[in-house]
Amino acid sequence: MAESPFKADIERVKREYSEKMTPGAVARIPGSSVVNKTGSWRVFMPEFNRDKCVRCYLCYIYCPEPAIYLDEENYPVFDYDYCKGCGICANECPTDAIVMVRETK
């Protein structure tokens, strides 16, 4: 699996974030929400069947997190660090390449 595209961002946030209070509650690190791993909220997880995928990107387009990105070959990659398991991807997938299964962890 390809590396999470947010990895560099997490490292950046950890590097730059300091406890220093900024007057006016100014937050100076854009995209710093990535340190918050919302994958822990998940009850159902999307299971991906690459053979069925037609690379229509609907799952990527409709992901509200976004926790789906695309690899070199145009297949979706699910970032389980952030996927909250809403199931929109599975519901919208035209070929049933994504199914929601109960989280086992």
Partner: peptide
């Protein structure tokens, strides 16, 4: 992408999308 993951919207939120 200029909207990052790790936000605290509910599952399936239309506003965040």
């Amino acid at each position: 992408e200029h909207f990052y993951a790790g936000h605290t919207a509910c599952q399936g939120c239309g506003a965040s999308l």
